[in-house]
Nucleic acid binder design. Structure first.
Lengths: 206, 206
DNA sequence: CTATTATGTAGACAGTGTCAACATGTGTTC
DNA sequence: GAACACATGTTGACACTGTCTACATAATAG
């Protein structure tokens, strides 16, 4: 897909290629072991070429994370639009999409949320895209509130609760922390449903 | 505290010292940049000494994670016993303890949940201690169910939902992902409360 | 006391991120 | 179209890292 369209020098769009090779490598080996020189090798350029496009390794990881958020946002958007007529169904669909994305790209998700987070503000476009995700969720909440299916507390706060539940479920699953409960794929879908339903309906005795 | 009790050779309890130095270093710099040689240097031994106690860097990280889970378990236990008369209060207390621990030790928590998770089963004692945490939560659930304050679904599943909410809240906070909503410390305590209450009471319009 | 074992040291090696100096295309301006 | 500046890519170097092997020393068992 990323055609190195010229003959030798001047790769075409090396920046984009490096990001995608990086995603590939992160998916295969672990995340912390992302190897800049290997990325360059696979992209077919010399070991110092990436420095023409990224200030350092962290900058490449930031770009990779940003691409990850973009991919996740696409999945979420699709999940939301598939169940347009019920807020509760939208919430469940979002949860499934989020967890499914994490299972499909565990190392990428790990890096998106733990790579260089201390200095997240140093990468504004990364910050922006994650804010966009927040807004997507909040929109669902607000519409649900208007239709009377979601209670009318502060929509910002409810969005935090929803994102927290989705994220916690996804992370604990990919980190094998819920192993005793979620042995098979089926168990994973089921437990995701349980988590989202617990949030929607509450834990209290009815 | 960790007194190198002999004069030179034979450090005393190097293993424990390495773990604690490692926790210190991880807390200061990032997690992924844990430097084995630096750990050895600070512990006052040669760069190869750690290899008498840990097979490789991953093994040290596993030991550090394990210690982290131990510390977290202590905090949780305390939070649970402080509110012994109400299951809902116990849940809120656990949430606060979990989030507070993550805020106090962000890099450690990051490493506990994303360091070497793919091969978690290669470190059985690490797996055991995290299972212990799961059981602590489940005990609260079961007792709450007996008292009629928590609904009587599968306690394993409810435990997953609770842990997911606590974990998601903690991670999103330390990763600055809820920034717009949680500017100050006060906001953090508040949003933790909101998340736990949303789970306890549900999102639905009442 | 001596021999074995546990623990620590010294030195080497390949591999990594990063930098500086150089090379080669691309595009602009007269 | 020629001369130039700029963007992009290459080579070689450097300090540093994880890890291995061979050696040194302390603790302990017989």
């Amino acid at each position: 897909m990323d055609t190195p369209n010229k003959k030798n020098y001047h790769h075409g769009d090396l920046r984009k290629t490096l990001i995608h090779v990086g995603i590939e490598l992160i998916s295969e080996s672990g995340a912390s072991s992302l190897d800049l020189r290997k990325v360059a090798r696979i992209a077919g350029v010399s070991h110092a070429a990436p420095y023409r496009h990224f200030a350092d390794k962290k900058a490449l990881i930031a770009a990779i994370s940003e691409e990850g958020f973009n991919l996740l946002a696409i999945e979420m958007e699709q999940a939301i639009s598939m169940k347009a007529n019920s807020a509760h169904e939208q919430l469940r669909g979002m949860g499934h999409a989020y967890v499914q994305f994490a299972i499909t790209n565990p190392s990428l998700v790990r890096e998106m949320f733990s790579g260089l987070t201390i200095e997240r503000e140093a990468y504004p476009s990364l910050y922006d895209i994650s804010k966009k995700l927040f807004n997507m969720i909040e929109t669902v909440v607000i519409i649900g509130q208007e239709k009377g299916n979601i209670k009318k507390s502060d929509s910002n706060e409810l969005t935090c609760a929803i994102w927290s539940m989705m994220h916690g479920t996804a992370i604990l699953i990919i980190e094998n922390q819920l192993k005793p409960v979620t042995m098979q794929i089926n168990g994973i879908e089921h437990i995701t449903q349980v988590c989202m339903d617990s949030l929607i309906l509450g834990l209290g005795a009815s």
